[in-house]
């Protein structure tokens, strides 16, 4: 899932400062699961904004809504009329939601209320960790299912580096060395020979280096 975190309230207040009537739009997808952008988060942020604006002597009218997903036209189209009645939309979806709004409903302006962080999962209740960098050429088949692109601070393909100590990364002692984890997992799977091979230089064109990427599924095209 996509994990996102709310921007500081002051930054949000500054970005909606010129407006008297806004829509606060959440998203029922990933950000609902990670508590940053679901219906409850919309309710909470709306009241925080109202209180702050009231205190500052410039009341604001907020229309609250949470479409099933903010990244698909059919779900945001349902709010078209209400969107037309406000000066701006404050979105607490991920960056994809914000852009879907700005591009599809181009007559209005949508401002981000979240910082989109990464693709990951909750490793424990309330704690999400990054797992996938979306690099476009998955290597999990030879790393025992653990990703060095997303999880190694130096993005090594032939790790671990000399800074791995006690299973921890030299960059942050709180972070596990993914190459130690890969080593241990491959040992358990009896596949340590996977680490004997010199992994060649990576072709980064599948990653974010060749401009905007796309995926086509011909059968689904109209």
């Amino acid at each position: 899932m996509i994990v996102a975190d709310r921007k500081p309230l002051d930054e949000i207040l500054a970005s909606i400062e010129p407006y008297k009537k806004i829509m606060l739009m959440g998203c029922g997808g990933c950000v609902t699961i990670c508590f940053s952008g679901g219906a409850k988060a919309v309710e909470l942020l709306a009241s925080q904004i109202r209180m702050a604006r009231n205190k500052a002597g410039s009341d604001i009218d907020i229309v609250e809504c949470t479409p099933e997903r903010q990244c698909e036209f059919e779900f945001i189209d349902a709010f078209k009329e209400q969107i037309a009645s406000v000066e701006a939309v404050l979105s607490i979806a991920c960056g994809v939601g914000v852009q879907t709004m700005n591009e599809h409903l181009a007559e209005g302006v949508t401002i981000p209320g979240l910082n989109t962080k990464f693709m990951g999962y909750p490793v424990e209740h309330g704690l999400w960790q990054e797992r996938c960098a979306g690099c476009g050429d998955c290597v999990l088949q030879w790393t025992g299912g653990l990703c060095p692109v997303a999880r190694c601070a130096k993005r090594l393909f032939n790790g671990p580096c000399g800074g791995s100590a006690g299973g921890r990364c030299e960059v942050d002692k709180e972070v596990e060395c993914v190459w130690q984890l890969i080593h241990d997992r491959l040992e358990k799977l009896n596949k340590l020979e996977n680490l004997e091979i010199v992994r060649p230089a990576r072709d980064w064109r599948t990653s974010t280096n060749a401009g905007q990427r796309k995926v086509k599924f011909e059968e689904a095209m109209l």
């Binding site: 601070a153 130096k154 993005r155 393909f157 030299e170 942050d172 992994r199 230089a201 990576r202």
Partner: peptide
């Protein structure tokens, strides 16, 4: 190379296009 975090420009983007083996 030592990670950029340890230096005087921790804000820098680390490149790591290749690793030392490559």
């Amino acid at each position: 190379g030592d990670h950029q975090k340890f230096g005087n420009h921790p804000q820098a983007s680390g490149v790591y296009d290749l690793d030392s083996m490559q």
